[in-house]
């Protein structure tokens, strides 16, 4: 009875690992698995070691982190809102993180410190989370949460447009626009380390909320009668999502569709149980982004294609196919 729920995460973890390995192997200069492993261990050719460790490894690790964050956040939000169309961007955390990053570009804060960009992005996500929690405390229910998210998203979107509009110079504008598309290009180990604590804490909070998400399958009142504290559940899920998505957007920009498609794809394999969807969604999200990023790197274009563009290009038709194929779920 419990076996399929162990097998699926193992398969997905294997996929993510294979994706990561191929991400390390594939590039401008392709390496074999042996060269990659000796490069990682630092026992081979110093050039190979430098490329694998300094260039490809941070990027691959970051792709895994970002994908896992988007996957688990999507699964948790869909469970909380009991809606398969929910997406981490819905509650406005991603757009505020993006706004924070654009502000950093606008004022050229990166000249001052390397970590200024992710820091302002995380600050943007944090402000939105506080707004969501304050409003959620005064107005219970999921509808105020969604409406607040939409309002904050549009405000952040408008302010982002304003920052683009008033860009100090064409280079800044170019940087902002490209960043908004979502990319993992030219990231260092600093980014990996910066995002990690947020991902671990946020992911831990979301996993702790898993049982409440299951109870919510029966509606809010029945969940409450089963001992689920609704406010605590909502605060936990929103905080967890804000931490992981805020951190992911801060280091990679906005990468769409992963948080929407991945949980949706895996749901039938876990018996539609929200709690059992969280970990597999994180693993599958990691695998998807690492593969999408490898595809983005090797596409023969004169400028590198942004990974956010790749996930949307792959995700949208796939999602459409799923919608067309799926039968009606509820009577």
């Amino acid at each position: 009875m419990t076996r399929p729920f162990v097998v699926l995460p193992l398969i997905l973890a294997g996929l993510a690992l294979a994706g990561a390995l191929s991400g390390l192997m594939i590039g401008y200069v392709p390496y074999g698995p042996g060269a990659v492993v000796s490069g990682l261990l630092g026992i081979g050719d110093p050039v190979v070691t430098a490329i694998v460790r300094e260039v490809r490894l941070p990027r691959t690790l970051l792709a895994l982190e970002v994908g896992a964050a988007l996957g688990i956040a999507g699964a948790a939000l869909q469970g909380l809102l009991r809606n398969p169309l929910a997406e981490p961007g819905l509650i406005g955390v991603s757009s505020s993180a993006a706004l924070g990053a654009v502000v950093a570009f606008h004022f050229g804060l990166m000249a001052w410190a390397d970590w200024a960009l992710p820091a302002t992005a995380i600050a943007g996500a944090a402000v939105t989370t506080l707004i969501l929690l304050l409003i959620g405390r005064r107005l219970p229910g999921t509808l105020p949460l969604i409406l607040t998210g939409i309002a904050v998203s549009s405000l952040a979107g408008a302010l982002t447009s304003l920052a683009l509009n008033l860009a100090p110079n064409p280079f800044a504008l170019n940087e902002m626009v490209l960043w908004l598309m979502g990319s993992l290009k030219d990231r260092s180990m600093d980014h990996v380390v910066l995002a990690l604590p947020f991902l671990l804490v946020g992911g831990g909070i979301l996993l702790a909320m898993a049982r409440g998400l299951d109870a919510l399958t029966l509606g809010e009142e029945t969940a409450q009668s089963l001992g689920v504290h609704l406010l605590r559940q909502r605060v936990g899920v929103v905080t967890g999502i804000a931490l992981v998505v805020g951190a992911a957007v801060s280091v990679s920009g906005a990468i769409g569709f992963v948080g929407l498609v991945v949980p949706h794809m895996l749901r039938p394999f876990v018996g539609h149980q929200p709690s059992r969807l969280l970990l597999p969604s994180a693993l599958a999200g990691a695998a998807l982004v690492v593969v999408a990023d490898t595809v983005a790197r090797v596409l023969p274009t004169n400028q590198e294609v942004m990974v956010g563009v790749v996930t949307a290009l792959l995700g949208a038709p796939f999602f459409l196919g799923l919608v067309l194929r799926s039968r009606r779920m509820t009577p």
Binding site: R82, T217, L218, G219, E221, S225, R267, H272, Q273, P274
Partner: peptide, 14 residues
């Protein structure tokens, strides 16, 4: 206290 509400809504096809 066990509670069986009137509406039998189930949000996912578990």
């Amino acid at each position: 206290i066990g509670y069986l509400p009137q509406d039998h809504g189930v949000h996912w096809p578990v």
